[in-house]
Nucleic acid binder design. Sequence first.
DNA 1: CTAAAATTCAAACAAACGTTTGAATGAGCA
DNA 2: TGCTCATTCAAACGTTTGTTTGAATTTTAG
Lengths: 250, 250
Amino acid sequence: MNTSTSPGKHGPETRSRILDAAEALFVEHGLDATSMRMITARAAVNLAAINYHFGSKDSLIQEVFRRRLVELNRQRLAALDRVEAAAAGGPIKPSRVLEAFFRPALELASDTEHGGRTFMQLLGRTYTEPNAFVRQFLAEEYAETLERFLAALYASLPGVPREEILWRFHFMMGATSYAIAGTDALQLFAGKFDDADPARLLPRLMSFLLGGLRAPLPEYEAARGTRRGRDGGADGRRRVPVEARRALRE
Amino acid sequence: MNTSTSPGKHGPETRSRILDAAEALFVEHGLDATSMRMITARAAVNLAAINYHFGSKDSLIQEVFRRRLVELNRQRLAALDRVEAAAAGGPIKPSRVLEAFFRPALELASDTEHGGRTFMQLLGRTYTEPNAFVRQFLAEEYAETLERFLAALYASLPGVPREEILWRFHFMMGATSYAIAGTDALQLFAGKFDDADPARLLPRLMSFLLGGLRAPLPEYEAARGTRRGRDGGADGRRRVPVEARRALRE
DNA sequence: CTAAAATTCAAACAAACGTTTGAATGAGCA
DNA sequence: TGCTCATTCAAACGTTTGTTTGAATTTTAG
């Protein structure tokens, strides 16, 4: 089996033709519902070519994600590097961190010519893929990037409980995935959007995400029934410190 | 074929046992990867029982979603009715509308005893299901509810462009779905959450959603650099009116 | 109790699945 | 030219898929 990118002899593009066809079909029908025969038919290659070049369908799926994700996360980390370099050790605004993470994704999602849009739709819906090996693979591929961005977010929001930051980052990834994957995949809002211009999606989404990130921290109802004291007492869970309130205001 | 809810004769619970088993397996493995034999095995019924009671696997899928979705949207609309009745024709705060929509969903997601949690995880990841007939069915099942809530949101945010409200509602559904479906399905954040208490999810999420909804509207970059002025000057797209700014502040 | 209707059951169906095989084909190099 | 090795190809492999069948069984109704 040859899994390298080195050009073969016959059709040097066989590998990439398979990857492109698979990517498109995975978006249209999902991973499971896309058969090897559908892929090889669209790619105009022999059925056995997938097993020859990739070994198995599972390996092909991995490679479809890998080739794009590696580049996407490389761009994200590079953007974060630039932000941190510009800060020169000083404080960093959370909005800068968020933009470093989400802008590359949205720009890839705007690229309709090289399949970037297709892939991002696929990626969005794959985060919740039940298939165990796909989830495992995605988690590994994301581990480093996620670690670095969470650390940057923590540092940029001193005083804000990490648990809350984690949750909000989770929410933000959800909103983003839906914004990308759902614009024409999810038909709930079909025909409702007059203006689905991808170029406007980034400012729209960034406004929303920043608003969500900066929202006042929730105050968990301590004891329901008896009204909680104005400033609560010692219910174990501390109120939001003023430092955190200030940090949330960007 | 008998698709009614009337009790059968032999095992009156055959139908519901199939539905419960299917629901659980759909979450674990996805719609496609769950076979009829897996379902009938877990439900401890004969393989042919599914086709006898539901007609086909597709019809079974529909019924799995329908029985829960009908009740969920009934609760949502009832909550909206109460909010509108309490306002007595006066203005309604957007936060009230949002809560009427999202609270029933999150409460259902907190119910671990009657499979509510299981179902909401399934629902969340099914919004982006590529399967055409599932999307079509979901859209139909949601149509009325979505229409009424969007109308209520529009009315509660006078002056704010409907397009922006629509987008933000879309973002909010995305964040919510991920929050529910992803808490233990998406493994990207695996092991990172110390506090995944479902009871705390509602305040956490509502804070985030409201923050996002109330965020300043994006101002689309008019003409960057020497870019052609598709947005230059009087292009019909107004800046955010002061009325809208006020409305966004709840 | 008996006839009819509803439900369960084991078995089989064709179709589609991912994968493997072994021969045919083509290019690169001696 | 002749040899080698990567690649392509048609065909078949054994499983698994959703669905159907017809008889056995149980419940309902007269």
